[in-house]
Design a protein around this nucleic acid. Structure first.
Lengths: 245, 245
DNA sequence: ACCCGGCTTTCAACTGGATTGAATCGGCAT
DNA sequence: ATGCCGATTCAATCCAGTTGAAAGCCGGGT
C-alpha cells in the first residue's frame, strides 16, 4: 500500500508539493478501512465527535435536520475529502453523515491531526488553508442560496462538483457521474425534488446539459459560469507563503 | 496602551487563557488604526489581498454582488473580530468590506499571521479552531437560508448577533443596538427590505421582540431558540486539546 | 425652523417555486 | 416473468415573498 494509491495524498498534492515524509504521514491516515452500504448513516449530529474520516471511494453527504423534518444537506463528500473537519473545533458533531452509494471510509482519531500539526508546519499551513478555503466555498454556496434562482443554483452546483472532481481526476472533461437522487439535490439547494426535476428538464431543453442514466454532461460550461458568476476556488489558492518543511 | 484595552485579546481570552506573551502578540496587531465613515467601502472583491483587519469599534459587513446587482451579505463584523481571515487562503479578496456606521479598523499584513503561526502553537490552534468554528457557523446560516421561513431567519439572526455580542460584553442581557438598515438585513437573510419590515412588525405583535430606535430587545429568547433550533457555537468550543505554550 | 435624503412602512398586483396527488418508470428480489 | 418499492415525472392549485411605487417618518445640516 504505497502513498501513490492514497486519494488524500493525490488531493493534497494538487495544491502543493509534499515531501515523502509528509506523504507518508497522510497516507497513514488511510490505514483503517470501513465499508458502508448505500444510504447508511455513519454518525449523527450531537454525537461526541472523536473520529474524522477520509473518503476512499464513493460519495457521501453531511446534513442537518430541523425539528419538524425539513432537511439541509451542507456538504457533499468525494474521494480524498476529509469528513468532519469543521467539527474538530467543537465538542459535538453538528451534522449527520450519510452515504449516497456504497462507500469506503478511513476513520482516524482527532489526535492524529494533532500529531500532524505538531510535526509538520507545511501540512499545518495546508490544513489551515483548506479550512479557510472551505469557508470561502461555503460563502459561495450561501450566495447561491440567498440570491439565485433554481436554475442558477443547479448550474452552480454542477460547476462546483465538476471543479472538485477535476482535482483528483485530471483527464475528466465535461462528463461525470452524479449518483445523488433529485431529492438529495433538492435538500442541498434548498428546493424540492419536484422542482429539481423540472429544472433539470428545462436545462436539458436549453442545451446546457445532457443526462444519460446517472452520467451528466455539461454542454455549455462557459454560459453556466457566466450565469452564476462562478469562481473556481480550488484553483485560486495561495500557497506561496507556506513554510518549507 | 496595555493589552487590557484590546478587543481582540478580550475576544480570544473568552475561549482560552493566554500567556502574557501571547496577549502582547495579539495586542500588537491593533497598533495601527484607520477610521472610516458610515457606509464606506474599505476594500473590494477581486483586490489583491494583503491586509487583514481587527475591528476596534463599530459594525461592518462583507458582501458579494451578482453581476446583475443582487447582493448577498455574508458576514457581519463586530468589535474584536478579525476581518478577511478566509481570504488568507486565496490570492484575491472574495468579498467587499463596507461599514455600517463610523468604524475604527486596525489593519495588519498577512505576514503578521505567519509570525504568530510560527511562534505560538497555542495561538495557532486557536486560530485554526476559530476558522473551523466559523465554518460551522456558516453552515448554520446555510441551513437557515435553505430551509427556514422569513420569521425564522430573522429570529435566527437576532439570536446569533446577541450570542456574539455577549462574548465581549458579559453583562449584556436581552437588549442590544442594531445599527443595520432593514435593507442590509434583507441582503444578509436573502429577503427584501419590504418583507423584513413586515416580519419585524409581526414579531413585535407576537411579543417576541421590542424595538425602540435602533435598540432591540429580545423578549422570548427561549421560544426563539426553540423556533430555530438554535445552537450557540461560541459556547461549545473544544479547547481541551490545545498545546500549552 | 425648514428642507432634504435616506429609511421604514404600507399597499396592491404579481410570480417563482411549493404542495399535493396521481401516474409512470426502473431496478431488484423472489 | 412478476411484484414491489422507491425515484421520477406530470398537472393543478396555492402561497410566501417579490416588485414597484407612494406615503410617512426621522434626523442632520444650514
Amino acid at each position: 500500500m504505497s502513498g501513490k494509491s492514497s486519494c488524500l495524498v493525490t488531493k493534497m498534492s494538487h495544491y502543493v508539493t509534499l515531501s515523502n515524509k509528509d506523504r507518508e504521514r497522510l497516507a497513514r491516515l488511510e490505514k483503517a478501512e470501513r465499508n458502508f452500504d448505500a444510504g447508511q448513516e455513519v454518525y449523527q449530529g450531537g454525537d461526541e465527535n472523536k473520529d474524522l474520516y477520509v473518503v476512499k471511494h464513493g460519495w457521501a453527504y453531511s446534513y442537518t435536520d430541523l425539528p419538524d423534518g425539513r432537511r439541509q444537506i451542507v456538504k457533499i463528500h468525494h474521494p480524498g475529502d476529509i469528513i468532519g473537519f469543521p467539527d474538530v473545533a467543537l465538542k459535538h458533531a453538528t451534522t449527520t453523515l450519510c452515504t449516497v452509494e456504497d462507500v469506503c471510509l478511513c476513520p482516524f482519531p482527532k489526535s492524529s491531526l494533532d500529531a500532524i500539526l505538531r510535526k509538520s508546519p507545511r501540512l499545518s499551513a495546508l490544513l489551515l488553508s483548506i479550512a479557510l478555503r472551505d469557508q470561502v466555498v461555503l460563502i459561495d454556496v450561501l450566495r447561491a442560496m440567498g440570491r439565485m434562482s433554481a436554475q442558477e443554483r443547479v448550474a452552480y452546483m454542477l460547476l462546483d462538483l465538476i471543479s472538485r472532481l477535476r482535482i483528483t481526476n485530471r483527464d475528466m472533461t465535461d462528463t461525470f457521474r452524479l449518483p445523488m437522487t433529485q431529492g438529495q439535490i433538492a435538500d442541498y439547494l434548498g428546493l424540492t425534488n419536484v422542482y429539481i426535476s423540472k429544472t433539470f428538464i428545462r436545462m436539458e431543453e436549453g442545451g446546457y446539459i445532457h443526462r444519460q442514466q446517472d452520467r451528466l454532461r455539461i454542454l455549455k460550461e462557459d454560459a453556466m459560469i457566466e450565469l452564476t458568476d462562478f469562481h473556481d476556488r480550488y484553483a485560486d489558492m495561495d500557497t506561496s507563503w507556506f513554510p518549507q518543511d
